[in-house]
């Protein structure tokens, strides 16, 4: 930024404030707000309270996944197995619910709890394997999670034989998808809980502090006496558990265990986190970035749906937007 002469500076003060805001918080909050306004101008239905809640609800799923991905990204890795893990959790959870119901019809609550427990367990196990391979055996995270992608996909399709698991208890969908607490849908509450947990871990725990240091400089983390292997592995465990939570909510939304549930969500979760401002080089990123990214992607796709943009065109636009967002973020870091 070149120095401005006083009269010019006066005239440009709002602009300067804007630039400062962007440098501090990124351009994304402004862009999201503008998009929200813009879509509303084209299609007034977009501004209805109902749609606002819908957007919040839709974005909570992605926010949870992006928050998981955030942990992997922070420690200089990423998790490609996210999408297939969603499918696996959905199928495994669904099957367990059916099994329990078959054994003791009517025990809906038990069935749902068992399904949730098994789903979370699958997430935990996947995360542990990912984490151990990356942190202890020092295998490149790309390779580890790529392999895990295949493994999860295999298990998901084998367990389900490739067909959706239907006839899940109504109670699942009613409680985890349709229900609300004082007007706030359950998925939004779940997302707030997950994001809150992530926030506490990252900002108030030794583990989170350690992850930032590992991502910023792994060797420095080691010399500083941090238990970097354990902490690095934990990042993948947290990621997978969050993803399992997201997967259970998604299963409740569709009402069936779906072997294809996660298909495109791996890339979406990474895209959301990175668009939101998480660095791919590790060590930089906050929970709020996952929220920004998820909101951005959701507002964009809900908006385009409402103004009836063709699905394939949406895909093209999303692609362009991803690249543009990352490029802009790069400009921001250069500015600083």
């Amino acid at each position: 930024m070149t120095a401005l002469t006083p009269p010019e500076a006066l005239g440009r003060r709002p602009l300067k404030a804007l630039v400062q805001f962007v440098v501090l918080y990124g351009a994304l909050p402004i862009i999201i707000a503008l998009m929200y306004l813009g879509f509303g101008l084209i299609e007034p239905a977009f501004h209805s309270g109902e749609n606002a809640i819908n957007i919040l609800k839709q974005s909570s799923y992605l926010a949870i996944l992006a928050a998981g991905q955030l942990f992997a990204l922070l420690t200089r890795g990423f998790d490609l197995s996210v999408g297939q893990l969603i499918s696996l959790v959905s199928v495994a959870g669904g099957l367990v619910m059916l099994d329990v119901l078959e054994g003791s019809p009517g025990a809906v609550a038990l069935a749902v709890f068992a399904g949730i427990a098994v789903g979370l367990g699958a997430g935990l196990a996947t995360g542990v394997v990912n984490g151990v391979c990356v942190a202890v055996f020092r295998i490149n995270p790309f390779v580890v999670t790529l392999g895990m992608l295949g493994i999860c996909m295999g298990f998901a399709t084998t367990l389900s034989d490739g067909f959706p698991v239907f006839n899940l208890p109504e109670g699942l969908t009613n409680t985890l998808s349709r229900a609300d607490v004082i007007g706030i849908p359950v998925p939004v509450i779940a997302a707030l809980l997950v994001l809150g947990t992530a926030y506490v871990i990252l900002n108030h725990s030794v583990l989170g502090r350690s992850m930032y240091v590992i991502g910023s400089n792994p060797r420095a983390a080691h010399t500083a006496g941090l238990r970097s292997r354990l902490h690095l592995a934990s990042a993948y465990v947290i990621c997978s558990v969050f993803v399992a939570v997201g997967a259970l909510l998604l299963t409740a939304r569709t009402g069936s265990g779906e072997p294809n549930l996660g298909g495109g969500l791996m890339l979406q979760s990474i895209a959301a986190a990175v668009i939101g401002g998480v660095s791919l080089r590790g060590g930089e990123g906050k929970v709020i970035h996952a929220v920004y990214g998820a909101l951005f992607v959701t507002v964009l796709s809900v908006g385009m749906n409402l103004i009836r943009v063709d699905g394939t065109i949406q895909q093209i636009i999303l692609g362009i937007v991803v690249v543009a967002a990352v490029y802009l973020d790069q400009l921001r870091t250069r500015f600083r």
């Binding site: 030794v206 930032y212 910023s216 400089n217 060797r219 006496g225 941090l226």
Partner: peptide
Amino acid sequence: VAEGLALSRPVRENASVAALD
């Protein structure tokens, strides 16, 4: 740079990092 500090993190975190136990 290579081994001592997490450059992108604040002074506070770099100073306290060895005493977090």
